[in-house]
Design a protein around this nucleic acid. Structure first.
Lengths: 147, 147
DNA sequence: TAAAACAATTATCATTTGACAACTAAATAA
DNA sequence: TTATTTAGTTGTCAAATGATAATTGTTTTA
């Protein structure tokens, strides 16, 4: 059992280094792709909506570790820029569901397109088997640690 | 070859979702652990130094995607707080190597300790074999994509 | 040796971000 | 029904961050 703990601590060290590397690589892949009309925080919100829409404001607030007032403000700015919009919902009238507007979708598609090109460069020389291993590794990590 | 491209594009989608999940999880694990005397950017710099020391200011600037003037300013503030220090180096006298001070090391150890506890919680119920798979998946991803 | 490039610093400014208090409206619990 | 909780908004303020210009000293290159 003691050995087990030691093993887990080494795994933790590995995990720290890994998450740091993920941050760096994704920052590199994403560098400069965001439209000039939005701030970094706003980009990150749009990305979240892109991946999880439709989503409530509370959920954005919680997932982005941002207070409700600040989340609300940034969403208002994004709405004013015509990049996202509130969806009518019948259930609980306190909850506001948010989704990208067609323009917001377009803006994010352009960004993602650029990131995709860079990513494809990164994996260009990999064979089918390597790619498959990559996909499996991601699935495993996402299932067990990064949900 | 066309199929290959389609496969790669699906892998890209998977990667986007994964990196977003990594960001969220690591933000959750790290939430509130940083000492009150430093800002988020400063924490991120200290973490980088912790993982890569000794490191030059240019390297920090490049890896953290921060301009040299701003990196220099934040490092000055960290030095003033006694958390990091410049290392004398004989080679190129333009380059300044940075490392954590004993106090900086202590501060980061405290933070990492908290993160470690949360991480151990997260993996508490895993068996030896699962942990091994986890470690292998990380190694694979870090070798092929997140360097 | 002179010119160019590199590593880092200082100073300044505008913008972004985070925190907080006070508030409205809707849903739920007592 | 009243009280409480939940979801979201508005306004304000200070601090953190990002961008840029100008400068110093050191190393390389021509």
């Amino acid at each position: 059992m003691e050995e087990q703990l030691e093993y887990k601590k080494r795994l933790f060290q590995k995990m720290i280094g890994f998450t740091s590397a993920v941050h760096q690589t994704s920052a590199t892949l994403t560098k400069g792709v965001k439209s000039d009309e939005i701030t970094p925080v706003q980009y990150s919100i749009l990305e979240h909506i892109m991946l999880h829409q439709p989503v409530t404001i509370s959920e954005i607030s919680e997932c982005q570790h941002m207070s409700m007032p600040n989340t609300s403000r940034e969403l208002r700015k994004l709405s004013e820029k015509g990049l996202c919009e509130k969806v009518e919902t019948s259930a609980d009238r306190r909850k506001q569901y948010i989704r990208l507007s067609p323009e917001g979708k377009r803006v994010m598609d352009v960004s993602f397109q650029l990131v995709e090109e860079r990513f494809l460069q990164l994996i260009q020389s990999m064979e089918a088997r390597e790619l498959e291993e990559l996909a499996q590794a991601i699935d495993l990590l996402q299932a067990k640690v990064f949900r």
